[in-house]
């Protein structure tokens, strides 16, 4: 079978995005459904079909999406309108757009290393991750389920939090 000549091939654009919180805990299929749902809800089925969006790669917190050339602004807007996946709050931030996946791969940075911490605030125990830039993501677990709290190192001092690392120090 003969390949389609380059002039007849559909031109694609690739969008590099990053997912917040950095440990998304969801599959690429779920992300695809969230993006497709957001596009349909914002622009309708006709534009969604025209845009031809797809998820290409999920690498840590980074996700690469694909769309037909000329529709990248609409795709980025639909991405900005996503606020949760399966009830879990999340944010997808557009980082860059390119015509090749290789160019986007160069922009992927190694995942931010964070160390697990356990702390006590006002008598309640929390566990979470502390990042090198001073950001702390704490998980509050109670009878209702679990809830994430986002704070910084300075806030911990304000809350008089006592932190312990997993090694007990």
């Amino acid at each position: 079978m003969k390949h389609l000549s380059p002039t007849l091939r559909e031109n694609k654009r690739y969008v590099l995005t990053s997912i917040m919180p950095s440990d998304p805990d969801c599959e690429i299929r779920e992300l695809y459904y969230a993006v497709a749902d957001s596009i349909t809800s914002l622009y309708g089925d006709c534009i969604a079909a025209e845009m031809h969006a797809a998820t290409i790669l999920l690498e840590g917190e980074y996700l690469i999406l694909r769309c037909r050339r000329g529709w990248e602004r609409e795709l980025c807007c639909a991405i900005a309108a996503i606020r949760s996946i399966n009830g879990r709050p999340l944010r997808i931030i557009t980082i860059a757009t390119s015509g090749t996946i290789a160019a986007l791969r160069k922009r992927i940075r190694p995942q931010k290393a964070g160390h697990p911490i356990t702390c006590t605030i006002h008598g309640m125990e929390y566990c979470g991750i502390m990042y090198a830039d001073g950001k702390i993501d704490l998980i509050k677990r109670d009878m209702k389920g679990q809830e994430l709290v986002y704070l910084t190192k300075d806030d911990m001092e304000k809350f008089h939090a006592t932190t312990t690392k997993p090694d007990g120090i």
């Binding site: 919180p21 914002l42 807007c77 900005a80 309108a81 999340l90 944010r91 931030i93 986002y150």
Partner: peptide, 18 residues
Amino acid sequence: TSILEQRTVREMILLTEL
């Protein structure tokens, strides 16, 4: 109400274009 609901200036521009 959360950092997950904050948007970048570029995203604001895209959303207001709607």
